[in-house]
Design a protein around this nucleic acid. Structure first.
Length: 503
DNA sequence: TTAGGGTTAG
């Protein structure tokens, strides 16, 4: 206050108004400043009161839910003390504090007070935030009621609060069904829906795998003159690609449609289409999409190339695979471990396993560390060619580098069994189980089946014992193989069996 | 540069 008096004193003019009226002179500037200052003081006071527990709680009494909640009375008294009207900020503070403490009964009374006793226009933001909070707490009915009550708070609901409501309802299986009715009521209330609301609805339809409906809605809003953004199209495309029942003509058709409406297609869109085509075995079409990308001016990244390279190799088109690998390098892309794995697999498919093995050295020199899968590919290829000595060498290298994994163990165990090195195979199974590589039931089934066919029924039973120790559930196939093995080995006496099972 | 997305074969 002294700051205000200083200028008049410094000029030596006596403040006669103050002396005569014993009141501060009013200037619009001072009034506004004072008003804001008072509100700030009241707000500070409110926060201070809120941080200390209410007297009833100190005395250990429970509050009467019908009485004015403590925080609300703090708000009223604080602002009264400074002779000013409560601000929206104060109410937002109350809403935040009460919702954080899950005091929703108190919150209802605060809202009622805001609705009936205040005069100011409540900002819509308060409602959209509260609707989200209600949604997070599973209070969908309260959220809907609040939305339709907004006009009572001297506020015009717009698409902002509607979108809040739509996004929470669309996340709930039960309340999602109320969305059409709510949209109809909104039309009566003159709440203008725009692209953002449709985007919520389309995303929801995609999420619940009703992509056909999403496309229908997209088409109908375009007819109504709306211009959905690229993200909506991308989402539909990605959902189409994820849906098993989608035909490739549907996917390609939608991609064409995106091009037709002159949307700026992204690398993700192309990537999704490529992945979809590859899963459908349309490897050559996937290669075509990669070329389309380039003509559209989008540089495919290493992931796109790796996927397409794999498709081309699957087709057995090794010349094109070589060209593609060269193209990766020419474009300045750095192949990563996945790319090398795909490429090495291609070499192995052509029985160029030694070349594949050499590639591991080259990739290491180029700073790309091979992983367990890299070795596994080569290991498996050597086993397939029955080059067990080379496989053994790879296995030892893998051991040195700690690159053994579950698949590699499975391959080695099967290779040993095929070579009738049953003792070694057992040792390896023991080792893998001890190292935490629990074989899957299908692996066990495969091992038991191989063992039984090779006549090692007793050993297969021993393995069964190990399997039980690890609580692995066996599929019917394993039991079948065992029974067949037992039938083929009548020499296996009951005593031997009992001995094996009790080991 | 990142985002999200990628590899075997039984």
């Amino acid at each position: 206050m002294s700051l205000f008096l200083r200028p008049s004193f410094s000029k030596g003019i006596p403040n006669t108004f103050l002396r005569k009226k014993r009141k501060w002179p009013h200037s619009p500037y001072k009034t506004k400043w004072h008003h804001l200052f008072d509100q700030q003081q009241a707000m500070q006071n409110l926060k201070q009161l809120a941080s200390s527990p209410p007297p009833s709680q100190i005395q250990g009494k429970t509050q009467n839910p019908n009485k004015t909640p403590y925080l609300l009375s703090c708000l009223v008294t604080s602002f009264k003390a400074y002779d000013c009207e409560p601000t929206t900020g104060a109410y937002r503070f109350l809403v935040k504090t009460l919702t954080q403490n899950s005091q929703f009964t108190e919150l209802d009374l605060v809202l009622l007070h805001l609705q009936n006793f205040e005069k100011f226009e409540t900002p819509e933001r308060l409602f959209s935030d509260l609707i989200r909070i209600y949604g997070d707490n599973g209070m969908f009915r309260e959220a809907i009621d609040l939305f339709f009550r907004i006009p009572k708070f001297r506020c015009v609901p717009t698409v902002c609060s509607l979108n809040s409501l739509l996004s929470i309802l669309c996340r709930n299986e039960e309340y999602i069904q109320l969305v059409p009715e709510i949209l109809t009521r909104c039309r009566i209330m003159n709440v203008r829906i725009d692209e953002s609301s449709f985007s919520i609805l389309i995303s929801t339809l995609c999420r619940i795998r009703k992509v056909d409906y999403a496309i229908k809605l997209l088409n109908s809003i375009i007819d109504d003159g709306f211009e959905p953004d690229r993200k909506v199209y991308s989402l539909i495309l990605s959902s189409l690609c994820k849906q098993k029942a989608t035909s490739s003509s549907q996917v390609i058709g939608f991609l064409r449609e995106m091009k037709r409406v002159k949307l700026c297609l992204s690398i993700v869109d192309f990537c999704n289409v490529i992945r979809y085509l590859l899963t459908k075995g349309k490897n050559i079409d996937a290669f075509g999409i990669l070329n389309d990308m380039k003509t559209e001016g989008i540089k495919p990244d290493i992931t796109c190339y790796t996927m397409v390279l794999n498709g081309v190799i699957e087709e057995g088109d090794f010349i094109r695979a070589e060209e593609l690998f060269d193209e990766i390098l020419i474009f300045g892309l750095i192949p990563d471990v996945n790319t090398y794995n795909v490429y090495i697999n291609g070499l192995c498919k052509q029985d160029k396993v030694e070349e594949g093995y050499k590639m591991i050295g080259w990739m290491e020199n180029l700073g790309c560390k091979p992983n367990s899968e890299t070795y596994k590919i080569v290991l498996e290829a050597f086993c397939k060619l029955r080059e067990f000595n080379r496989a053994g060498e790879i296995w030892r290298e893998m051991k040195l580098k700690g690159a053994q994994n579950l698949h590699a163990y499975r391959i080695m165990v099967c290779a040993l069994i095929r070579r009738s090195e049953i003792v070694e195979a057992f040792q390896l199974i023991e080792e893998m189980v001890n190292r935490g590589f629990v074989p899957s039931s299908s692996t066990i089934e495969e091992m038991i089946s191989v063992m039984c066919k090779a006549g090692f029924v007793a050993e297969a039973l021993l393995m069964l014992r190990k399997v039980f120790d690890h609580a692995i559930v066996l599929q019917a196939g394993a039991w079948e193989a065992l029974l067949l093995g037992l039938k083929l080995n009548p020499g296996l006496t009951n005593a031997t069996l009992a001995n094996l099972v009790n080991t």
